[in-house]
């Protein structure tokens, strides 16, 4: 497969993921304002973070396909933020698990039922969009 095609596919994939994250972010903010949904936990700042990260990816997508650094910069920083948000949620889940067992000492607790936030799936999915980073030397600056 040609390099251009691989980058194009990667950008399309990440753009779909970013669009989903954008919607998720909007729903998270809406949830904290009282408009609850089943798939998005209410979280103003969490939602805001998702919106910013996905906006960066979508903003940079067009110029990334054109092999311009300008686009790649936004695309990669957006993905990095999305990955960081996912990673944070994994750490939060582990910390919650640990806290649950600490607070359960001496109590007759039922088993821990993990509530997995969508950001954790996004973490793994976002890793797959990093392909352009590994071929970044093929990109060029926009000539005025």
């Amino acid at each position: 497969m040609k390099l251009q095609t691989k980058v194009l596919l990667s950008v399309i994939y990440s753009s779909i993921l970013a669009s989903f994250s954008l919607i998720l972010g909007i729903f998270e903010i809406a949830g904290s304002l009282g408009l609850h949904t089943n798939f998005a936990p209410p979280d103003i700042m969490g939602g805001f973070s998702l919106i910013i990260a996905s906006s960066l990816i979508l903003y940079g997508a067009k110029n990334t396909v054109k092999f311009l650094y300008d686009g790649l910069s936004f695309y990669l920083v957006g993905l990095a933020l999305l990955i960081a948000i996912g990673l944070l949620n994994i750490i939060i889940a582990l910390a919650d698990l640990l806290d649950y067992y600490i607070l359960c000492i001496g109590e007759n607790c039922s088993g821990y039922s993990a509530h997995i936030r969508p950001e954790i799936y996004i973490f793994f999915l976002a890793l797959l969009g990093l392909y352009p980073f590994f071929v970044r030397w093929h990109f060029r600056r926009k000539v005025p």
Binding site: M45, G46, F48, S49, I52, A53, D70, S73, L76
Partner: peptide, 23 residues
């Protein structure tokens, strides 16, 4: 250069800073 191009951006720089602080 690539990271600076985004994190020091006129429009995106401040929201990115807020996200980093929140995280």
């Amino acid at each position: 250069d690539m990271i600076d191009h985004v994190v020091a951006h006129k429009i995106f720089g401040l929201p990115i800073f807020l996200v980093v602080m929140y995280l």
